[in-house]
Design a protein around this nucleic acid. Structure first.
Length: 705
RNA sequence: GCGCCUGUAGCUCAGGGGAUAGAGCGUUGGGUUGCGGACUCAAAGGCCGUAGGUUCGAAUCCUACCAGGCGUACCA
């Protein structure tokens, strides 16, 4: 246990002893007899403080006599032992500088077993968003750290190259963009992402229209009355009066509209301009507030559901209006078309498979770019398309073994039943769709079995959104039931989602900040700041540093929060270059580099000097910096064992702060020998430790910025 | 219903059973012709969700409750 003001550690032994001694004495003296447990404790407690101090003093005297420590003091019942700073400092600095890039790393295979970490499960045919970014950052950091801590790590990824999103994208491509090429800007992978987004917009179009109408009808009485009148206009030139009557009924009774009831489906297209007219009118000439406040008192402080402003209503109406005439009539059959497209894949239609292969590669190029940029490397790339067949086989096996059964027309495993659990715990997992197409679970069962059988993995880690925790428990239990002991060693490293300040992320709704956008935003901002702070830096260096700082800031933001906490990704805050963030740490590193540069020191010079350093009277700031540097390997061990990069983000921040304290209090270049050399080696060791710490987080340490 | 997660300064969060619970942001007021001010010092600000329990000692471990979020058979 550390204590402030000196380099050493504190022992709580005197306190523990004191409580034993005091209670034994009191008992012997018979003072505890007849007292309640509570009172007895109170008695003991009263005696402990003073007694601990007495004991601490006695022990301290004894330890002091051994002469092995610089100082031994008894304070508040704790024994504070501080080391002989000079000899320990020499040893530490020597080790740090000698080990250089590997300081803090444990020897390979320090811990037994082979651990496979699967992360960064990106999708082809679809744009990645900030949630994926958290995954990549976490996966990379956990891999680096666990490896440095001496575990045998196999990083892998699992690409979603088939599944509903791919089918949707390709359906949209074939129907509406066949033969097109991307516009000037952007890669083909990104363009496919746009097509996927379009397919989602198309498929949810009816729902969006109805939800919007429903909302406006519920929220706005004036609107309802006006529409009621205006519908009569429509009556005149529409020949299906039943539809008009139906719409009229829905609106005036504030009921949801069901398009299945329409005789003529295009009535919605005709109805839409009328709505727009009314909404525009309301926006431009707001009706007076209804004077019924006496009747409906809104309780203060209670959260009202957010109502849309007139501007927002017109905006949303216009967004839907842009495609209304084109999409509404067609959209009724699109769901069926998706199902048909699914069948093309299932039947391995050659033309369709060829298209899939071609477009898949477009996306893969982009994925490799993302992985390169964020420092993700993999021993193996798994793909969903590669485990579908193995998935069907495992389903057959499970059925044969009686582990799975057909229920409600599809194969499922009733896990609780198989485990003999009375209370519902793992529930029932479907493992294949009733139409024979594969589910995510089909493929994950097969893949996880492959990890055990073909890769000899002892521990399988999934870095996946925390909402899938029941799902992974189910996968794990099913494999355990079918005889895989390793299934007990599967770890779901879940993390919470990344949200915008205004609401939840959902790529389907198109309001998610895309990985690409966040990246661009951060790089621009970093470039601007560097230009402002360091205008004399040459262009090439500036671009490189802007990249290091921008990406570093993203990574630090993603890692400096516990996995089970939601990150509210406020671009403004993430872009802040002050305080508890990557640039502060990178800056400390750059300053350390600059000091060494001024002194003309390189690694060799530091190594040569460390043998003979002398620190006659170490300052508290020096001691605390030494102590922090010496903590590094233990931090790596803890972060590795628990898969928690957070310990390291905290550590590098702490080290930077300690270093800032040090150089603020202790001049390096301006001090006299031998202090100057001693301090320079301290700076050199700080630089090494900071660089190594950042490297484990996947963050670059620029030498100037 | 059941299960998982969260609750600490105005806000965002650290906190490995131990000393007076710490940072950043924000607020207020200071510092340096300096090894680059992307720095630094200080002040103000806390029934650590509530109530019990374990312990010499609990923000930390256990139980119950309250509040919020998420999950809960053919989404991924």
């Amino acid at each position: 246990m550390p204590f402030s003001g000196a380099w050493g550690s504190a022992s709580t032994i005197a306190r523990m002893l004191a409580s034993n001694v005091v209670s034994a004495e009191l008992e012997a003296a018979g003072k505890l007899e007849g007292l309640g447990k509570k009172q007895a404790k109170q008695f003991v407690n009263d005696g402990v403080n003073s007694r601990a101090q007495e004991l601490a003093e006695a022990i301290a005297d004894h330890v002091r006599e051994s002469g092995r420590f610089a100082t031994v003091e008894a304070v508040n019942g704790y024994i504070n032992i501080s080391y002989d700073a000079l000899s320990v400092a020499r040893r530490l600095l020597h080790e740090v500088l000698r080990q250089d890039d590997t300081y803090g790393h444990a020897p390979e295979a320090t811990h037994p077993g082979r651990i496979m970490i699967e992360h960064s499960q990106l999708n082809t045919h679809k744009a990645a968003h900030v949630g994926h970014l958290r995954n990549v950052c976490l996966g990379v950091a956990v891999t680096n750290i666990a490896r440095a801590a001496g575990y045998t790590i196999m990083p892998t990824t699992y690409i979603g190259d088939i599944g509903r999103h791919v089918i949707q994208c390709l359906w949209c491509y074939r129907e509406f963009h066949q033969g097109e090429e991307p516009h000037r800007k952007g890669s083909r992978g990104r363009w496919l992402g746009d097509i996927y987004a379009e397919s989602s917009a198309r498929l949810t179009f009816r729902k969006s229209v109805l939800a919007f109408l429903d909302r406006v009808i519920q929220e706005n009485i004036v609107f309802v009355e006006a529409i009621d009148r205006m519908l009569k206009k429509l009556w005149a030139d529409h020949n299906e009066s039943e539809d008009i009557a139906y719409l009229l009924g829905c609106v005036s009774n504030q009921k949801a509209i069901d398009p299945a009831v329409f005789v003529d489906d295009t009535v919605m297209v005709k109805f839409w301009p009328i709505i727009g007219e009314q909404l525009t009118q309301e926006r431009d000439a707001p009706p007076p507030e209804p004077d019924d406040t006496a009747g409906t008192v809104t309780p203060e402080g209670e959260d009202q559901p957010e109502t849309m402003s007139p501007e927002e209503r017109v905006e949303e109406w216009a967004r839907l209006n842009a495609t209304m005439a084109d999409w509404w009539p067609q959209s009724a059959t699109w769901e069926q078309e998706i199902k048909d497209t699914f069948q093309l894949w299932e039947q391995k239609d050659p033309e369709f498979v060829a298209l899939w292969e071609k477009t898949r590669e477009w996306s893969m190029i982009e994925l490799r770019e993302i992985f390169d940029e964020f420092g993700a490397t993999f021993d193996e790339w798994f793909c969903e398309s590669g485990v579908e067949d193995a998935g069907r086989k495992i389903v057959r096996d499970l059925l044969e073994e009686g582990i799975a059964e057909i229920s409600e027309g599809l194969p499922v495993v009733k896990i609780d039943e198989k485990l003999g659990l009375e209370t519902e715990t793992y529930r029932t997992m479907p493992i294949l769709r009733s139409d024979g197409t594969t589910l995510y679970s089909t493929k994950d069962l097969a893949l996880t079995r492959m990890k055990f059988v073909d890769y000899g993995v002892d521990t399988a880690v999934w870095v996946v959104d925390v909402r899938q925790s029941l799902y992974f428990d189910q996968i794990s239990k099913i494999l355990e039931i079918s005889g895989f002991a390793q299934a007990a060693n599967t770890i779901h490293l879940g993390y919470e989602f990344v949200a915008l300040p205004t609401g939840t992320i959902s790529s389907r709704k198109g309001n998610a900040p895309m990985l690409e956008d966040v990246r661009g935003l951060m790089l621009d901002r970093a470039a601007r700041v560097i230009e402002q702070k360091n205008p004399q830096m040459d262009r090439a260096a500036r671009e490189k540093v802007a990249w290091q700082v921008g990406i570093g800031a993203i990574k630090y933001t993603m890692l400096a929060r516990d996995s089970n906490k939601v990150i509210v990704f406020d671009p403004e805050e993430a872009l802040s270059f002050d305080g508890h963030a990557a640039p502060y740490i990178q800056y400390a590193h750059a300053r350390a580099c600059r000091i060494l540069e001024h002194a003309g020191w390189d690694t060799a010079a530091a190594n040569a000097a460390v043998e003979t350093i002398d620190l006659p009277e170490p300052a508290p700031e020096e001691l605390s910096l030494l102590q922090t540097i010496s903590d590094f390997p233990a931090v790596v061990q803890r972060a590795g064992a628990e898969y928690r990069p957070l310990y390291l983000t905290n550590y590098v921040y702490d080290l930077s702060k300690t270093f800032n304290d040090f150089y603020h209090a202790c001049p390096v270049l301006r001090s006299d020998e031998p202090v100057k050399t001693a301090r320079l080696t301290l700076v050199a060791a700080t630089r090494v430790t900071l660089r190594n710490g950042l490297a484990l987080l996947g963050i670059n340490a620029p030498e100037e910025m």
